[in-house]
Design a protein around this nucleic acid. Structure first.
Length: 275
DNA sequence: CATCAGGCGAGAC
DNA sequence: GTCTCGCCTGAT
């Protein structure tokens, strides 16, 4: 067990921000979340700014501290927002516990291929299907069963018709083609990890089904390129409503993507409230 | 029944 | 280069 006290950190908000589809609130009354990532399964409990990670000190230091971006000063980021920009201040305040995670590159590629023209609930279901069908089955020391995210080899071996049977719809072909491209080495993921933002984006867009928006999401959530600014329907809507003269990117060089998450989450949640 | 959900590719121009 | 259209599927 590792206990920390941290402000500007909220597991429910990270979960709700839809950047990580394998972080879920567990059944039961207590606020406990389960995360499958980095080939492991981790349970996290939060009460206010007190967070408990169910793992060893060593595992926390070596893996999760970096994964959850705990070294970044989000208070400083939010503090840099233009005091005149009431909308952005409101959005950032609303989602102040969000962090930009450092997730697995291959997992983000497949996850955001699935995300297009799709809703978060169904995206989660599709990913769970893929993991349970094609991911490696594992067990924690306490005996909990979980499934790794299937690698490119595993998915490349799945016939196209079988992917359709996972209810992935037209995204089945994208996953199929992309898996083959990666297995064949047409796009070298290790090389992508070393690239700067523009180059990485261009390289990722060689993959079938990866356009500008999906590429930006992959850059932001896997490569931690916080200058990436994915523009989806929510962001489009918010920018049109609140920034008719254009979003002031020049004020926020290097962390545009972090602000994008506040705007996205705010619009997503407000939409749900209106139901 | 139509529309929407974190878009993309193909084809027309 | 920009624009339009069709696309799997489930929820509302």
């Amino acid at each position: 067990m590792v206990n920390i006290t941290k402000d500007y950190f909220s597991i429910p908000q990270i979960c709700g921000s839809g950047q990580c589809f394998r972080l879920e609130r567990l059944e039961g009354e207590e606020e406990i979340y389960g995360l499958t990532a980095m080939g492991r399964y981790l349970e996290i409990r939060q009460a206010g700014n007190s967070i408990t990670f169910d793992c060893s000190e060593q595992e926390f230091e070596q893996i999760w501290k970096n994964y959850f971006d705990l070294e970044e000063d989000y208070e400083k980021i939010i503090g840099s927002i233009d005091r005149e920009d009431e909308y952005l201040l409101r959005a950032a305040d609303y989602g102040q516990g969000i962090r930009i995670l450092r997730q697995d590159l291959w997992e983000m590629i497949v996850s955001f291929l699935i995300s297009q023209q799709n809703n978060i609930k169904r995206i989660r279901k599709c990913i769970t299907n893929l993991c349970e069908k094609y991911g490696e089955k594992r067990q924690t020391p306490k005996g909990r069963i979980y499934f790794d995210f299937p690698d490119a080899q595993a998915l490349a071996a799945v016939p196209l018709e079988e992917l359709y049977a996972c209810n992935l719809g037209y995204r089945s072909r994208y996953i199929h083609e992309t898996s083959l491209s990666v297995v064949r080495g047409e796009v070298d993921l290790e090389a992508v990890k070393a690239m700067g933002h523009e180059e990485a984006k261009k390289e990722l867009m060689k993959l079938c089904g990866v356009g500008v928006k999906v590429a930006e999401c992959i850059c932001l959530f896997a490569l931690h390129q916080t200058e990436a600014f994915p523009i989806d329907t929510h962001i489009n809507k918010a920018l049109a409503a609140w920034y008719p003269q254009g979003f002031p990117f020049e004020k926020y060089r290097g962390y545009e993507g972090t602000l994008q998450q506040y705007i996205f989450y705010y619009d997503l949640m407000k939409g749900r409230e209106r139901g």
